[in-house]
Design a protein around this nucleic acid. Structure first.
Lengths: 210, 210
DNA sequence: TTCGTTGCATGAACATGTTCAATATACGGA
DNA sequence: TCCGTATATTGAACATGTTCATGCAACGAA
């Protein structure tokens, strides 16, 4: 991913970075994002305040870096557990469900990360861009397959449809995470009804049915 | 809207509130949200720092209060300029256009207000709830009328459909406002394509006609 | 009018994210 | 081996949102 000149100093640097990251994860999880101070992270990691800031642009970057591992694990889980022989609606909602459940497990962290992710002003961090890319790839690929299977009309642009579905997903996330205790089932139900509205327009069947 | 016991002291209080609000609007507009400090607002208004904080819960509340007037003006503009004899798609996109243009005029303020609005954790301010309500009322009303006119199939739930459209609107807002210079035309084009995807599913015509 | 109460106004103090000049030390060439 | 350079590390200093004890002026009852 990133070339590391295997010099003694660089190893040292990567190690302190890891130490900081571990400390941050621990404190974020225990105290939540708001109550975790940079100073506390530094002290817990046994480094200076400035060291933390030299490794991570700001507190938000520290958060996204700390959650990077979780994120990758979720992507893997989605890839591993998605029912291959189900229709695209089921597949996408399954992926959403996995993420909703994670959000419910870490409301504070998810909330703040999403807040940052949505308004990645200026140069958006590489992590968030990666998140966006991953979602796009999964979404568009799933839709294309479904289209080839005839579940979606050929004249539908899968890129646009993914954008529409992803938009509803983000919307459900913001609404759901606005509550003190996000309810993944409720969020999923909401996403289902919104998804169906879009899916119906893309369906090859006559809309009169159902 | 709010009963004021007409005592001398309360008038005084309302007046200082107004002065602070004017100062905030001026500075927010000139410097942008990030570069405007509470201290600067206080000094510009000729009051103490604590006075500002006693009138507004935090900086974000000050922003939403300062933009309240603009917001109401936009709502009025929407009500006054919406083409009554157009279909619901045109009507809703017209409303969106007015807001997009405003966002483009005040990128910094809009961005930060939206950021707050989307994640109204804890007790969300009355302003933001009002915004949400207004959008819902306009949206649902418009859709219901269209449904009665036969533009939307009778079995579609207008509440859900509004949620879907509003979700796409919010999504376009976040994507558009993430850019340094939001382009209202581009945002509108994006919203149009997403809206059409939903509208097609709700249309009484056969989807084959495109 | 007088006096105790109420509540707005105030700025110093606090909490915390962020910056920066100084320091130490690994690095690579002479 | 020795030295100049680059850079990781550091914590004090800074910027700024937020809190709080205090003062003071308006209020209303006696």
């Amino acid at each position: 991913m990133h070339e590391t000149r295997s010099t003694w100093r660089d190893l040292q640097k990567q190690q302190t970075r890891q130490i900081i990251l571990e400390a941050a994860k621990e404190l974020f999880e225990t105290l939540g994002y708001g109550k975790t101070t940079i100073r506390a992270v530094a002290k817990y990691a046994g480094v200076g305040v400035g060291t933390v800031m030299s490794h991570f642009k700001d507190k938000a970057s520290l958060l996204s870096a700390a959650l990077m591992g979780d994120w990758e694990r979720l992507i893997e889980e989605v890839a591993a557990t998605t029912p291959v022989d189900a229709n695209y609606r089921t597949q996408l909602l399954h992926a959403a469900k996995i993420f909703f459940e994670y959000y419910a497990r870490r409301p504070s962290l998810s909330r703040n990360l999403l807040k940052e992710a949505m308004f990645s002003l200026e140069v958006q961090g590489p992590e968030l861009t990666a998140m966006d890319q991953a979602a796009r790839e999964i979404g568009v690929r799933t839709l294309r397959s479904a289209q080839q299977r005839g579940e979606i009309r050929p004249d539908v642009d899968c890129e646009v449809m993914h954008l529409a579905l992803f938009g509803e997903y983000c919307f459900v996330c913001t609404v759901g995470l606005s509550q003190p205790e996000p309810d993944p089932d409720q969020m999923l139900a909401m996403l289902e009804s919104l998804t169906d509205l879009i899916a119906r327009g893309a369906s090859p069947e006559s809309p009169g049915t159902k």
